[in-house]
């Protein structure tokens, strides 16, 4: 899926910085949190030895944390909350040795990065189950680990060969970032920035006017676009971080987000997403007024599955992956609930 000769060209530092901000700094009302705020608890035979706050330094172990007994998930969660960290992980040399040996097993000189990483993800989960590695929150336990073939099928569905995918975000100053991904012979061969299109000017309020030209230049310089996401950065953040019910349908209706081209799989996905969001809204209303027990019956993830059955429109991405990616996203969006 990722070519050995992957090219990464003409991505301006400002674009890269905007992309990093977009991915790492969720809106304040988000339930995900800044992924850069993490805690690493170094253990020896399960017993805490040192605590490191990512992006800061080592921090003292709190007095309440026993130094002579193995740490558990509850203590790790408490540490996370005390330090207002988005995530926390605990582990030591033993688990790193285990994963290091797993690297050897996973290594295949002809395989790409993802094909090597997926078996490693199983090892991480096994270490988690064995209690050698602790995570807080434990949400990652529920994220399915697909097989390499499933990921490859999903990738082929998302982006057919000899086509490109575009993601553009526009902020108050105009273009925040624009990335173009090109796929050939089943592999991602190039990721390019907006500059690679030869300098198409994008004005702040008129970014929509630039979309046809961007698509045209992409087709000429790289390959015809298969999917393009163009949007106001704030609207895209609301959608990705799930800070507002029905953010996507609303953004599409107001044209704060433009999907062009819109592949059929995405259309199906969005229809179901809208229904799921509607169910989510109903659930929040019920929480306010409804009797106990009724709320759970309006679980959006469960309803999505029921709607899929009723409509007879199976999400093709779910079919390829073996699980519903929207359900996973919805779960991750409730990160802070742990």
């Amino acid at each position: 899926m990722i070519a050995a000769g992957l090219r990464f060209e003409r991505v301006r530092p400002a674009e890269l910085a905007a992309l990093a901000r977009f991915a790492a700094e969720p809106p304040p009302e988000s339930r995900i949190g800044d992924v850069r705020h993490g805690l690493v608890l170094v253990t020896r035979a399960g017993v805490p030895v040192a605590l490191a706050a990512v992006r800061r330094s080592f921090v003292p172990l709190p007095a309440w944390l026993p130094r002579d007994t193995a740490v558990d998930v509850t203590a790790l969660g408490r540490l996370r909350h005390e330090h207002r960290a988005t995530w926390a992980v605990a582990g030591g040399a033993a688990v790193l040795h285990r994963l290091d040996v797993a690297l050897s097993r996973a290594f295949d000189p002809s395989a790409d990065l993802l094909a090597c990483l997926l078996p490693l993800a199983h090892e991480v989960r096994a270490a988690r189950v064995a209690g050698e590695l602790l995570f807080s929150p434990a949400l990652l336990d529920e994220v399915p680990i697909p097989a390499v073939g499933q990921v490859r099928s999903a990738f082929d569905l998302l982006l057919p060969d000899d086509r490109t995918a575009l993601v553009y975000a526009f902020g108050p100053q105009g273009l925040s970032f624009g990335l173009i991904a090109e796929k050939r012979r089943g592999e991602l061969v190039r990721v390019a920035g907006h500059d690679a299109l030869g300098g198409i000017a994008v004005r702040r309020a008129q970014w929509k006017a630039a979309v046809p030209r961007i698509l045209q230049e992409t087709a000429q310089r790289f390959a015809p676009p298969a999917v393009g996401v163009f949007g106001d950065e704030a609207a895209l953040r609301r959608i990705v971080f799930g800070t507002e019910p029905a953010a996507l349908p609303r953004a599409l209706a107001t044209r704060d987000v433009i999907l062009d081209p819109l592949p059929s799989w995405l259309g199906v996905l969005l229809g179901l997403d809208t229904a799921a969001k509607a169910a989510g809204t109903a659930r929040s209303l019920l929480r306010r007024f409804g009797p106990a027990g009724l709320v759970d019956r309006f679980d959006p993830v469960r309803l999505t599955g029921e709607l899929q059955k009723r409509l007879g429109a199976e999400n093709p991405l779910s079919r390829a992956l073996g699980f519903d990616p929207l359900a996973v996203l919805a779960r991750l969006q409730r990160w802070q609930d742990g």
């Binding site: 290091d100 690297l103 000189p109 790409d112």
Partner: peptide
Amino acid sequence: DGSPQVVPVPPRW
């Protein structure tokens, strides 16, 4: 155990 040591860097280990 004789297995090789791997350096996991992108895009190919």
